[in-house]
Design a protein around this nucleic acid. Structure first.
Lengths: 339, 339
DNA sequence: CTGAAAGCGCTTACAG
DNA sequence: CTGAAAGCGCTTACAG
């Protein structure tokens, strides 16, 4: 298993010379699919080849292989930021699923900036990835149509976009679950920390919440819906805005756990006790939620599974199939913050 | 700027044919360093080449280039997990710095598992990265000596290891800062949530805290030092253990912000108010710390800068230089949790 | 079952 | 200043 990366790596030619056979034979035995490898050499020869390869730690040069086969077995992944736990976990799912099918994942941050998105996509393409997983799509962006026009194989993840295949959580259902829960608890005055308006996650969760809330007979003013950044500071600022507007809500739905934590901070700063004076519900059920001083109710979304789905779908696209979007089911975890 | 990735990409040969010159001339003009590119062609020819390349969106095939030059301009990065915010931010620094010097970063999670670490390192090497940044080194591991023996270019990040160059925060100083702060505040009964004993970050912060505490005249029992996971749940469990031991501490130092948050939860569950009944100090000053309901005191470590330093150091190693470890200065941020 | 050859897209001495 | 050739390490029809 010794791999002498130190100096020149062992090549197919080295193996062939050592065994006194032709490199093409070595290649066939080592790298064909099992079916064609079967007839590629006598069992005796094949065994000698495999033994030597294992002994010297032969590892094929991926650059040479790619140059010849026109495929890199590289998946490009573009996310807003890996420092957003949600994307980091999705990426773990991707890495995992990709490895299982012999691909490597290659990830980059776009900071949700349009220019940076384009730049990073071009960078991935310049590296000749076989396909892309886009985790940062903007509802108002024009990157996607452009990619389709250029016939680049890709799927969306995390955020959806009409007309393109995506692996997401069913954010509509998620928003509804929260509306139903807060309605059942008897709340009347609710507010939403809505996230970024360019992200389908934010828009779907928010609009589904509002729609369901009104269906149930509830009332919610437009100025109780505050768009915000997804992070803690964004949640705090949004909550401050809500509290400053006069009528204090009895419940706040933040479309992201980190924004919810920021909201909890703002509420406390105003002398309100979360759970008693004001309910708070977050989204994603990140590992933090259950462990907070006041445990946070949150909508669980299967993040790693969403990443795995994206890989599966992209495989389909690479095989030329028509793939359908997959929306995974969310589930509400009720905890002290809204019990 | 149109990049027709859709079908066969434009090659050097295509450009040469179009211009009626030899591919080698095109190559020299487009890809040599400025110095040798100067004498590579007449200014007129060079300009025609550059114009056409820009017009058709020529982008050199990195696989072909790598095969020829024996360099991929790829940096492999191994981290315990990107879902640890600390590593995610360091990675942002890496990506940034790498792009600036024409490299791409390639990251993978090892989950702090020795077998997985080896597997991931081998995967990176099989992809022929030019060098490695190791963010998950274990004090008791044997991966590093093996890499050195094989002459693989690498540097450590986040965690140090005697005898290998690393880019870290000065965790010794960080631990001391916390000891001095809590001593100044008049605390007598302190406990440490120490993190994983295989990580230098945990060991350095903890031992420096304890040492400085004793220097100042303080007393701390061995069973007030509890090793733990770095995450919120680990912090909660460790705090429970500390509280169960009888003598309630008046201050807790957790070597990680997430562990600190878990500890805050446990304290609250025991009816203690953080900041009033028991001080808590974390480490890294992640963006969450200042925004928590009870803002958390924390030692700020320059995470992105650590990542950038790792890239800079690895560049040095790749140039064959002897590089020195870099320890960046931490700074304590005092907030309500220990004010 | 195995060999020989061509070629993927580059770069880089070597000529002239 | 420019061209022609060789070769990086593979794979894959084509023969036999």
């Amino acid at each position: 298993m010794e791999n002498n990366t130190s100096e020149r790596a062992v090549t197919l030619k080295d193996l062939a010379r050592e065994l006194g056979i032709h490199p093409s034979t070595v290649s066939r035995v080592l790298h064909s699919d099992p079916a064609s490898a079967r007839g590629a050499a006598s069992e005796a020869t094949a065994q000698r080849i495999r033994d030597l390869a294992a002994e010297v730690g032969y590892s094929p040069d991926p650059q040479a292989t790619s140059l010849r086969t026109r495929r890199t077995r590289l998946l490009g992944v573009v996310v807003p930021r890996l420092s957003d736990l949600v994307l980091a976990i999705m990426y773990e799912g991707i890495e995992d699923a990709a490895a299982r099918v012999g691909y490597s994942a290659f990830v980059t941050n776009s900071r949700d900036d349009e220019r940076e998105q384009r730049r990073k996509v071009e960078m991935m393409l310049a590296r000749r990835v076989d396909g892309l997983i886009i985790g940062d799509s903007h509802l108002d962006g024009d990157v996607l149509p452009d990619l389709r026009r250029r016939a680049v194989p890709f799927v969306l993840m995390n955020r959806r976009h009409p007309g393109f295949p995506s692996a997401t959580c069913d954010d509509i259902r998620g928003g509804e679950l929260v509306a139903e829960h807060l309605w059942d608890k008897g709340h009347q005055q609710v507010a939403v920390i809505a996230g970024e308006p360019y992200a389908s996650t934010a828009v779907d969760r928010t609009s589904a919440f509002v729609e369901r809330w009104r269906e149930l007979g509830g009332d919610i003013a437009e100025d109780s819906i505050v768009w915000s950044r997804f992070d803690t500071q964004g949640g705090r600022e949004a909550a401050e805005k809500i509290l400053a507007s006069g009528k204090a809500p009895t419940a706040v739905f933040a479309v992201n756990d980190f924004a919810a934590i920021g909201a909890m901070g703002a509420l406390r700063a105003h002398g309100l006790t979360v759970g008693r004076d004001c309910a708070v519900v977050g989204y994603n059920d990140t590992s933090l939620a259950a462990e907070l001083p006041i445990p946070l109710s949150s909508v669980r979304s299967p993040m790693a599974e969403i990443g795995r789905n994206a890989v599966r779908m992209l495989q389909g696209v690479l095989r030329g199939e028509d793939v359908e979007s997959v929306r995974l089911e969310p589930a509400l975890q009720v905890r002290e913050s809204s019990a």
